[in-house]
Design a binder for these strands. Structure first.
Lengths: 195, 195
DNA sequence: GTTTGCAATGAATAGAAATTCATTTTCTAT
DNA sequence: ATAGAAAATGAATTTCTATTCATTGCAAAC
């Protein structure tokens, strides 16, 4: 097995374990077991437990940003873009459940190092939304008096809370597309100028 | 000092410590120090570390639900009610910063016991919103095809995400009332029937 | 002033788990 | 086939901190 493979294998295992038990309750030996390597092997690839979490963020959120930007590049209309963002985000939550669980929990930790991290990668992701709002305001589709800084948060928060419902309760009363429809519909009605 | 005082003193200290370091990184000795009691004293009032967290939820969220229900009882119009909820919630975040931090973080933990807890108290709180939506739909003010189960989440998520911004970044670009205005305005526009 | 019972203390204990490292296994080049 | 290097192993060590409990302090009762 190539070195890169084992790096990824450990990260995948860590995602699973962190996702189900949370960072603090996860033991290195759990991750090792899941990845089918010895405990010590993990230290050949990562400095320590926290480094695994950081690397996971770094690599996974980066991928995510690339993906969603690619999807958005195909659209011009800000209204469509907002919908695409919602759909894409919610799909991700279903398809990469474990990763979503890790993000859900760990982004909220208040350890200083996570705080510092958050202001880089995570904010990049959320700023994609304010970009869309901005564009819509410039082209006269969205109400100009609304603050993109608040809307991006509100919109992201709305999506994120739905994820929480799905992840924590395994509740699937609502489908991804119903939810994306309904949330973007509320927001689009809420922020669009009357025509 | 009366017994009840010390119980409260420890809870207050715990709120502060959990809020700033998170449950897992907080040491019992940190809490003891903050409360100005000996480590052992804490065990005269609580069974264990986790019991402190649970009690904190139990007592504080209960107070919160009572408060907000009282404020809402004074209003009849569902549109006003939604605004009041937003304002009340955001005010709380500012006034009881440490409690808000604890809720932010700990409600997202995936330990089974927290999960179980969440389905009782916390859901009661969020259900206040769906109650308002329901009322508004019955009286023909809100679009009837929207699902209260999604809206409540979206609305709560939007508020909660703003809290996160304030708590984690000490960012105060936006005031409480501006934010409550803007978020409830977006939602009210988004969910109301055209008049 | 002494006894009694409850509350508080904090040093000692115990358990858990992150990390290390001497040893073993696997791979690579000759 | 074999030496030497590189990677992997997992038992032993170290660290950390929740919890315990023998001791001390204190206030009311007698």
């Amino acid at each position: 097995m190539k070195k890169a493979d084992k790096h990824q294998k450990i990260l995948t295992a860590a995602t699973k374990v962190f996702g189900s038990k949370g960072f603090f309750s996860a033991r290195i030996s759990d991750i090792a077991k899941e990845a089918k390597v010895a405990d010590g092997t993990i230290y050949l690839y990562f400095h320590n437990k926290y480094d695994i979490l950081l690397t996971l963020f770094e690599e996974e959120i980066a991928k995510l940003i690339v993906d969603i930007k690619a999807a958005l590049a195909l659209e011009e209309d800000p209204r469509r873009k907002l919908y695409i963002f919602a759909l894409h985000h919610l799909k991700l939550v279903i398809e990469k459940k474990e990763l979503a669980e890790v993000l859900q929990m760990e982004l909220r930790q208040s350890s200083d190092s996570v705080k510092e991290y958050r202001v880089t990668k995570f904010v990049d992701y959320v700023n994609i939304i304010s970009g869309i709002i901005h564009q819509g305001q410039k082209s006269g589709i969205f109400r100009p008096e609304l603050k993109p800084g608040i809307i991006k948060r509100a919109f992201f928060g709305a999506l994120d809370e739905m994820s929480r419902l799905w992840i924590l309760n395994s509740d699937h009363s609502y489908t991804v597309s119903d939810t994306a429809d309904e949330i973007s519909s509320i927001f689009l009605n809420g922020i669009s100028l009357p025509t």
